[in-house]
């Protein structure tokens, strides 16, 4: 029963995400952090950070992570299958029956409204996360550096995530030693 619920929740998330991994964030926040308390907003951040520097698709990686943390290896597999199942069904149907889906007028019209809606949703979701993760001057500084450098350069996200992890250990660990000495 728990596995079925895990599958269905992630199928819902996969079926209503329009766009990339980031577009999944608002629905993930609602479904698994706010409505069900399976994870905290902070944990969701951690999974996003790791999902960006491991191979594969960010949205799927986050699903695998949540599934595994909740229900072990089998949970990871179930959540992964859940998040990809709507895509497999919808795309197969379109590929089989509609040869020029992107030319269907109504679809184009709808997407002209869905895209701005996604912009509003992701900005709202990002604001929640920024508030939670910027806890002091150091984190504000790291946030600003990553934001500027990732906008201006093509450096891999993995580099920023790993560097920030090391900075975290040095800053916090260093402070503790200083306090002890």
């Amino acid at each position: 029963m728990d596995y079925l619920r895990l599958f269905l929740v992630f199928a819902k998330i996969g079926g209503f995400t329009f766009g990339g991994g980031l577009a999944m964030l608002p629905i993930l926040q609602r479904e698994i952090a706010e409505k069900r308390a399976w994870v905290t907003q902070e944990q969701l951040m951690d999974y996003y950070a790791i999902g960006q520097c491991t191979p594969g698709i960010i949205a799927v990686n986050v699903a695998t992570f949540v599934g595994h943390q909740r229900k072990g290896i089998f949970g990871g597999v179930i959540a992964t299958l859940g998040v990809v199942t709507p895509s497999v069904i919808i795309i197969s149907l379109i590929a089989a029956f509609i040869s020029n889906f992107q030319d269907v007028l109504l679809v184009r019209w709808a997407f002209d409204g869905i895209r701005p809606a996604v912009v509003a949703l992701v900005i709202n979701a990002a604001l929640k996360i920024v508030k939670k993760s910027l806890v002091d001057a150091w984190t504000v500084a790291m946030f600003a550096v990553v934001l500027v450098l990732s906008t201006l350069t093509n450096v891999s996200p993995a580099v920023f995530v790993l560097a920030a992890g090391v900075c975290g250990i040095l800053l916090k660990g260093g402070n503790r030693h200083a306090a002890a000495a």
């Binding site: 951690d46 900075c167 250990i169």
Partner: peptide
Amino acid sequence: YAFYGLRAASAGLIA
């Protein structure tokens, strides 16, 4: 400690 830094970077990438 690592996640303390990592979350800030993650927030930057998301922004």
